[in-house]
Design a protein around this nucleic acid. Structure first.
Length: 212
DNA sequence: TGCATGATGTTCT
DNA sequence: GAACATCATGCAC
């Protein structure tokens, strides 16, 4: 239970490079409020994308209409559509002008599990409802409509609260990022050790084109 | 149990 | 026209 309902993550906390912010986001609570109800998850896996100097970032080739949110002030949500069927959500870092962001990859549902389960009917009970970026968004009901919302505002449908130190700071492990073709040698993926729900490292596999 | 492939829409060159 | 920060499914062993 939240000690103070209005307590949100301070925006200044996010006004730093993504690789520094990312480990701090582990254990934080992402809360989404829709007409159906509220679903909250504890972040267990994130990835840092360091703007234009990061070949794997959407901002690598400069600002576009899609990634404009990343160039804005920190504390906002950058939601994008990928692979034709999935959403992914990022937390914008760094002051305006710098496109740094943290991709939220996985989380543990701590509230509204019933609603999350309704959104994603899963048979396996042991299966995490938010194992993977796209699943995390679906469990929380995140769509492109939430692109650019303020994560540090109470009135937002998507809020970010500081992590409860009850987790006692589980060991944070790092490793190469997942699903990126470039920049895989940079260990900017962070996850809570001992969380089997995090996705396994998947080496870059060139999409085998149907070359008949 | 584990790997390999297909699906699907938006964005950028 | 091609790529993509993915997931679910099918088949093999």
């Amino acid at each position: 239970m939240p000690e103070q309902p209005g307590e949100l993550l301070p925006r200044e906390f996010l006004a730093r490079p993504a690789p520094e912010v990312a480990p701090g986001l582990l254990g934080c609570v992402l809360e989404s409020e829709t007409d159906e109800g509220i679903v909250a998850v504890t972040l267990t896996e994130v990835e840092a994308y360091n703007g234009e100097e990061d070949p794997a970032s959407h901002a690598y080739r400069g600002q576009t209409a899609r990634n404009a949110v990343m160039y804005g002030p920190p504390g906002y949500a950058y939601v994008y559509f990928t692979y034709g069927m999935h959403f992914c959500v990022n937390v914008v870092c760094m002051p305006p002008g710098t496109a740094s962001a943290v991709l939220l990859r996985a989380g543990q549902v701590v509230a509204g599990e019933e609603l999350a389960r309704r959104r994603r009917p899963v048979d396996g009970p042991a299966r995490n409802l938010a194992r993977g970026p796209a699943r995390l968004c679906q469990a929380l009901g995140i769509t492109r409509a939430l692109n650019g919302v303020d994560l540090c505002a109470q009135a937002s449908p998507l809020r970010l609260r500081p992590g409860t130190r009850s987790e006692e700071k589980n060991s944070i492990d790092t490793g190469p990022r997942v699903g990126v073709s470039q920049g895989a040698d940079v260990p900017w993926r962070f996850w809570l050790d001992g969380e089997p729900s995090v996705s396994a490292y998947r080496p870059w596999v060139p999409k085998r084109r149907a070359r008949t």
